[in-house]
Simulated scan of single mutants.
Amino acid sequence: MTDDSSETEPVEIDVGEVEGSIYRILSSVVIPRPIAWISTTDGDGVDNLAPYSFSTVASVDPPIVLFAPVDDEKDSPTNASETGEFVFNLVTEDVVEEMNETAATLPADESEFDHVGVERAPSTTVEPPRVAAAKAAFECTLHETIDVGGSVLVFGEVQHVHLAPDLLGDDGKIDVANVDAVGRLAGSMYATTQERFGLERPP
């Protein structure tokens, strides 16, 4: 009889003994992660556009969203901190290729909008443009930033919302079945929201 207990026992990892970071573990297990496609404008008027998969909703009242780079200070948090404004654009299947292209490292004086050919649309309450093709966009003013390890968490208070009509149901509210958002997994892998199911919350 063979002992296959090793196949059922969990792998134990003491984080304090790991050389380097456990980024791959975190990014492979905390999935899928929503992607914040962040547009900002620097002090010289250059529009920046970059995706961040460390992002989420932080508060409902007031409405606060957040995004964070990993291990490095990027243009988006720098611009948001200096100007106090950014736009959180939704990534859906129809713009995922363009989103990926804007992850390229460019000189600070070169805009990802122009480099990739992403069409801008004017915002209503903030200076940075939104992505014209984004089905939802949150115009935000900077709420605060918090340094956490090698990252900086950027919190933005939502001031204005843009929604594509095809996200709405017959009642005029967002129908989640119409939101074909893309989530980040690990490495070069992504996920869609095609497969969905419902569960009634217990009382």
Results as ranks from 00 to 15, higher is better:
P129A: 14
V148H: 14
G183W: 07
N100W: 04
D147L: 10
G183F: 06
D171I: 01
L185V: 05
D170Y: 01
D147C: 06
V161A: 13
P129I: 03
F138T: 01
V179D: 03
S151K: 08
A104T: 11
K135D: 13
G156R: 13
V176M: 04
G172F: 00
N89Q: 05
A108G: 02
P128H: 09
V158I: 15
R130E: 10
A121Y: 05
P165C: 05
A103R: 00
V158L: 04
I174E: 03
E112A: 02
H143K: 14
F113G: 05
H143F: 15
F113Q: 05
D94R: 01
K135T: 12
T92C: 12
F155V: 06
A133T: 01
N178P: 02
S123H: 01
V95F: 04
D114W: 01
D175S: 12
D147E: 15
V95T: 13
N100C: 05
H160P: 05
P129M: 10
T141H: 04
V126I: 09
S111W: 12
F88Y: 14
K173Y: 15
H162W: 14
G150H: 14
E157V: 06
V116W: 12
D109E: 15
I174W: 01
T145P: 06
A108W: 12
D171K: 11
A191S: 15
E144K: 13
L163Q: 03
H143I: 08
G150R: 13
K135A: 10
A136R: 03
E139D: 04
D114E: 15
V96H: 15
D147H: 10
N100D: 09
A181Q: 08
S111C: 07
L167C: 06
H143R: 15
R184I: 09
D109F: 05
G169S: 10
P129E: 05
V118D: 00
E119L: 00
C140D: 06
A181C: 06
G172A: 04
D171E: 06
E110W: 01
T124W: 00
T105K: 10
E144Q: 14
H115G: 02
V179G: 07
P122H: 07
L167D: 12
A121C: 06
V152R: 15
T102P: 10
T102H: 09
A136C: 07
G149T: 08
G187Y: 11
D175M: 04
A181H: 09
P107I: 03
V176R: 03
D114Q: 04
L163Y: 07
A191Y: 03
T125L: 13
D114R: 05
D180K: 11
N89E: 10
T125N: 11
A132W: 01
G183N: 04
F88I: 00
I146T: 15
A181G: 07
G183Y: 08
R120P: 02
Y190H: 11
T141N: 09
V87N: 09
L163V: 13
E93H: 12
A104M: 06
G117M: 00
S111I: 00
E119K: 06
A191D: 07
V91E: 03
V158K: 09
G169C: 08
D109I: 01
K173G: 10
E110K: 13
T92F: 06
A134N: 04
D114S: 06
L168S: 08
V161R: 11
N178A: 08
V131L: 00
D94L: 02
A137V: 09
L185C: 09
T193F: 02
V126F: 02
V118W: 00
